[in-house]
């Protein structure tokens, strides 16, 4: 049985030792124009949004905000984001999610990407406390927690850094973070700010 560690060792060797490709992939050929698969303005059948009601094995049972019920299957090839790229075990009942994948004939969404509790908030900083930003977003208050070692800041499009000292009270920011379910609190993944 191949463990995750074995797989990492194999893939590391593949990319760093200059192995010769034996397959037939041709990226240029694969760059065909994307199919116009969904009418603009229409619901996207290959996308699911909602909250997780039940988890059975690798199947998530999700209730959408419009009340529609969806089943989402997660595989080893599915990316799972929950504050950082993480594993399926971190996904919990009650979490909110966005999932993109391929809708199968039986109605199940075979997920390729799963973003759990992800939020994208335009706000201004009303105050700053110890490892916490107090944000005002559309008239409501949000407590945004800094996670040292994970939280990054992008100042005016420059490479992300962990230094948050240039953030200013009163400044406008965009925050990508992970919502803590059923609270007005989030954990910060990335802050985008002007300087």
């Amino acid at each position: 049985m191949t463990t995750k560690l074995d797989r990492r060792v194999f893939l590391t060797a593949a990319v760093l030792t200059g192995a010769t490709a034996v397959g037939s992939l041709d990226p240029a050929e694969a760059f065909a124009a994307p199919k116009f698969d969904v009418e603009p303005g229409a619901p996207d059948p290959n996308f699911v949004e909602g909250r997780i009601g039940t988890i059975t094995g690798t199947m998530l049972f999700v209730t959408g905000s419009d009340g529609v019920f969806n089943r989402v299957r997660v595989t080893g090839a599915t990316s799972v984001w929950k504050l950082t790229p993480t594993s399926f075990e971190k996904v919990a009942v009650g979490d909110g999610l966005y999932a993109r994948g391929v809708r199968m004939a039986d109605g199940v969404l075979a997920a390729e990407s799963l973003w759990v509790n992800i939020v994208n908030i335009e706000a201004h900083i009303s105050s700053i406390g110890r490892n916490v930003l107090h944000l005002e977003h559309h008239g409501s208050k949000i407590v945004a927690h800094v996670v040292p070692g994970t939280t990054a800041t992008v100042y005016n499009g420059t490479p992300a850094i962990s230094d948050m000292s240039l953030l200013k009270v009163g400044g406008h920011v965009k925050v990508i973070g992970a919502w803590i379910p059923d609270t007005n609190e989030i954990q910060i993944a990335t802050v985008y700010a002007g300087v």
Binding site: P85, I128, N131, V132, A152, V154
Partner: peptide, 20 residues
């Protein structure tokens, strides 16, 4: 008071790697 001082680490943020 520098309340966000402890957020700074030597580790390169993953987001920075993705940007590169």
């Amino acid at each position: 008071t520098h309340p966000l001082a402890s957020a700074q680490t030597d580790e390169t943020p993953l987001h920075s790697t993705v940007q590169q």
